[in-house]
Design a protein around this nucleic acid. Structure first.
Lengths: 96, 96
DNA sequence: AAATTTTGGTTTATATTGTAAACTTGTTTA
DNA sequence: TAAACAAGTTTACAATATAAACCAAAATTT
C-alpha cells in the first residue's frame, strides 16, 4: 500500500536542505539559503525543526567577525532521508 | 537547482490518489478510500481540490440504487503528475 | 412496518504548517 | 558617525490537512 511519509521531510524546503546536507560534509546557513532560494526566516524555522528531530546538527561559530551557522546531517537524518525516498518511490510506480 | 514542487501534488493523500488514477482507467470513491486508508471526509476534500485543478474528473452516478462517484485522471493531471515525479527526483539525487 | 444499521458521501471546525514580514545584533563602508 | 549590509531570529498570518460531525438514502433487522 502507500506507506506513511515522514511529515518532517515532506516539506519542500526541509527536503531541499536534507538533500543538500546528504551530499556534503557540512554547509552553512548562507550557503543553504543561496542554494534553496529560501528566505532567511523560513530557513531558520525549518532548520530548527530538523534540529529538533535530530536529523541535523547546528554549530554556531564565527568566520572572522561574522557569525556563521554550520549544519550537518546526522546518521538518524541520513536514515530518515533514505527511508523517505524509498517510501515516495512507491507512490511513483503506480503503487496499486 | 531545486525546482518548485506543485503544491497540489505535494500532499500525501492527493499524491496517493493521483498515483492510483495514473495506473488505472477509473476508480470510484470507495475504492480510493480503501486503497489509501483515508477517511471519507479527507478524501472528499482532496478529490475536490484535484477536480478544481483539472487534474481529475468526477462522475456521479448510481450502481444499482447506491450512489457512486467515479474518478479519472485527465491529460493535464497525467502531465502534472509526471512533472512532479521528475521534479522530486532532483531532490533525491543529492541535487547540489 | 418500524427501528436500526450501513453506505456513500459532504460540510464544518480545528489544529498544524509553511511562509514572509518585521525585528535584532553586530559589522562594514561612505 | 551615519547609513547600509550581514546573518539570523521572532512573530504574525494565511493556507493546509485532517478528523469529527452531519446528512440522505438504502439495506437490514426485529
Amino acid at each position: 500500500m502507500f506507506p506513511k511519509l515522514d511529515p518532517l521531510l515532506h516539506s519542500e524546503l526541509r527536503l531541499a536542505v536534507m538533500s543538500i546536507l546528504a551530499g556534503v560534509d557540512e554547509a552553512d546557513f548562507t550557503y543553504l539559503k543561496a542554494q534553496t532560494g529560501a528566505t532567511s526566516g523560513n530557513l531558520s524555522v525549518q532548520i530548527d525543526k530538523l534540529t529538533g528531530a535530530g536529523y541535523i546538527t547546528v554549530e554556531k561559530g564565527f568566520k572572522g567577525k561574522m557569525p556563521r551557522t554550520t549544519c550537518r546531517i546526522t546518521p538518524l537524518g541520513q536514515k530518515a532521508f533514505s527511508e523517505y525516498v524509498e517510501a515516495l518511490k512507491t507512490y511513483f510506480t503506480s503503487g496499486v
